[in-house]
C-alpha cells in the first residue's frame, strides 16, 4: 500500500498545478470576447473571437433553417441564411454588444465580454 503521506504530497502537487494553471489562464485571458450562438434560447455553440485566425465559416442548423456564420479576428457576421427576411445577414459584421437576431430561425448571437458588461442593453 502507498503511504498516506505520498498521497497527500501527490494531491497537494496536483492542487498547486491546477491553481497555477488557473492563475496563468486568468492572467492571460484569450481576448475574452466570445460570441455565443443560441437557437430557441439554447446555447448551441460559442466562439472565442480573439482566437480566430483568418476567416472561418460554419453552418448552424436551427431546425427551422440554416444560417451560415463567418468569424474573423474579433468579429462575426451571418454570411448567409435561408430565412425570408435576411435581417441577420443585413446586420453585417458585428463585434459589439448588439446581438444578431434571426427571428424566423429563432437564432440569437450574443457577445459575451469576460470583463462584466451590463446585465441588459436597452435599444
Amino acid at each position: 500500500m502507498v503511504k498516506t503521506r505520498t498521497w497527500i504530497v501527490l494531491i497537494s502537487a496536483l492542487l498547486l498545478l491546477s491553481l497555477g494553471l488557473t492563475l496563468w489562464l486568468w492572467l492571460h485571458p484569450t481576448g475574452g470576447r466570445t460570441a455565443n450562438i443560441y437557437v430557441d434560447g439554447e446555447l448551441v455553440r460559442s466562439v472565442d473571437l480573439a482566437a480566430v485566425e483568418g476567416e472561418e465559416t460554419f453552418t448552424v442548423d436551427t431546425g427551422r433553417g440554416l444560417n451560415v456564420i463567418t468569424v474573423s479576428e474579433g468579429r462575426l457576421r451571418v454570411s448567409g441564411a435561408d430565412c425570408p427576411d435576411k435581417v441577420c445577414v443585413n446586420s453585417g459584421w458585428l463585434s459589439g454588444s448588439a446581438p444578431i437576431v434571426c427571428l424566423p430561425h429563432r437564432l440569437v448571437i450574443k457577445f459575451a465580454d469576460s470583463s462584466g458588461g451590463p446585465d441588459a442593453v436597452a435599444g
Binding site: 459589439g96 454588444s97 451590463p118 441588459a120 442593453v121 436597452a122 435599444g123
Partner: peptide, 12 residues
C-alpha cells in the same frame, strides 16, 4: 446595470 445602445455603433 442596464446598457444604453449607442445609436452610431453596435455597442452601448
Amino acid at each position: 446595470l442596464v446598457g444604453v445602445r449607442d445609436p452610431f455603433s453596435d455597442t452601448f
